[in-house]
């Protein structure tokens, strides 16, 4: 443990994203989908990016993977460094070395993310042939082994089947097998269990955790389900309207929520504490229009504590401790209002 800690200090962080911004040209104008996102993730860590649909969480990782169609998309600023070397804006050929090899990705809907005209085994074998130069036979045998690791029964027979012959949970396992085929150092999972039942979700989450323990890969988990976050994450970044509004360890974000949006999300969900019969408190209104994002805090139109300042100036980063920050003016020393339910730096 101490050895790896030492190595961490000297080696560059596995993945570091800084000030990433992505825009899309549409008929209605320019959508500013991601407006300056920073995060980093290291070996063996799980970072969860949480937010509502349209908050930019998927676009953030798609930009890193070079999956944004350009045009209409555009990365307007920022950098993403994998072990210190830049991965954004490389041309197609170079991005292939990263995509699938260094960073594996699994998608939300396994039914539409796989090629219906190729067998499962061939699809898993493909990255091995491309990235590792395996022969078809070698790659196919490796595919069978990977299906076994992903706990698909009768892997040899299953590898010769097509996606329509698999259930949703099995397809997600096949996708995980494909994503880990080249032993990536980062696995990006974009809503991996949203389309699955809770029992299958539990199996898939267990599988991801087991693989992480074995290989030490980092996981970036994109989800809107706070339950999944609580089960999986070490670090949590809460995104709203294209920006991260709160970031910290999973315990800090859940038990010491410092942003009104995080708190709003928590209060909108039923808790399972039998002694607590609270009423669901929805967040009224809807997210801001990202064609013309507000100059101030993106959340201020829905925030119960919004002040005049919130409308005009984007909040600074207020650190509650070294690894936990909230972008909310309430944390400013001069803020007149310090709501009880929020966590503040001096509160203990």
């Amino acid at each position: 443990m101490s050895e790896t800690a030492l190595a961490k200090d000297t080696a560059p962080v596995l993945l570091e994203v800084e000030n990433l911004a992505v825009e899309f040209d549409t008929y209605g104008g320019i959508v500013k989908a991601v407006r300056g996102v920073d995060f980093k993730v290291d070996h063996g860590e799980t970072l969860a990016i949480v937010g509502e649909s349209g908050c930019g969480k998927s676009v953030t990782v798609q930009a890193m993977m070079g999956l944004i169609p350009m045009p209409p998309g555009r990365i307007t600023s920022g950098s993403a460094r994998l072990r210190g070397s830049e991965v954004l804006g490389r041309n197609r050929l170079n991005s292939k070395e990263i995509r699938g090899a260094e960073i594996g990705m699994i998608f939300q809907d396994p039914m539409t993310s796989l090629n219906p005209t190729m067998t499962i085994g061939d699809q898993i074998a493909e990255p091995l042939q491309v990235h590792k130069g395996y022969s078809y036979r070698q790659a196919f045998n490796e595919a069978i082994r990977l299906l076994g690791i992903s706990k698909i029964p009768e892997a040899a027979r299953r590898a010769k089947q097509y996606p329509f012959e698999f259930s949703g949970g099995m397809l997600q396992r096949a996708m995980i097998a494909m994503a880990i085929s080249c032993k990536p150092s980062i696995l990006i999972a974009d809503e991996p269990t949203t389309a699955l039942d809770v029992t299958i979700q539990a199996q898939i989450l267990d599988l991801m955790q087991d693989l992480q323990k074995e290989t030490g890969m980092a996981i970036i988990l994109i989800t809107h389900d706070l339950g999944v976050v609580a089960r999986m994450a070490d670090e949590v970044a809460v995104m709203y309207a294209g920006k991260i509004v709160e970031h910290g360890s999973v315990d800090d974000v859940f038990y010491r929520s410092a942003h009104p949006y995080t708190l709003g999300l928590k209060k909108a969900m039923p808790t399972n504490d039998p002694s607590l019969q609270h009423k669901l408190l929805p967040i009224e209104g809807s997210p801001p229009d990202l064609f013309a994002p507000p100059p101030g805090c993106g959340y201020c139109a829905r925030c119960p504590y919004a002040m005049q300042l919130c409308n005009v100036r984007h909040p600074d980063d207020f650190f509650l401790k070294e690894t936990h920050f909230s972008r909310c003016w309430l944390h400013h020393a001069d803020s007149p209002n310090k709501p009880q339910e929020l966590y503040f730096r001096d509160k203990e």
Binding site: V198, T199, Q201, A202, L205, D225, L226, G227, V228, V229, A230, R231, A233, V250, D251, F254, Y255, K266, M269, T271, N272
Partner: peptide, 8 residues
């Protein structure tokens, strides 16, 4: 199997 929003 139902994950709850409570890390501890």
């Amino acid at each position: 199997s139902n994950p709850e929003p409570d890390p501890q």
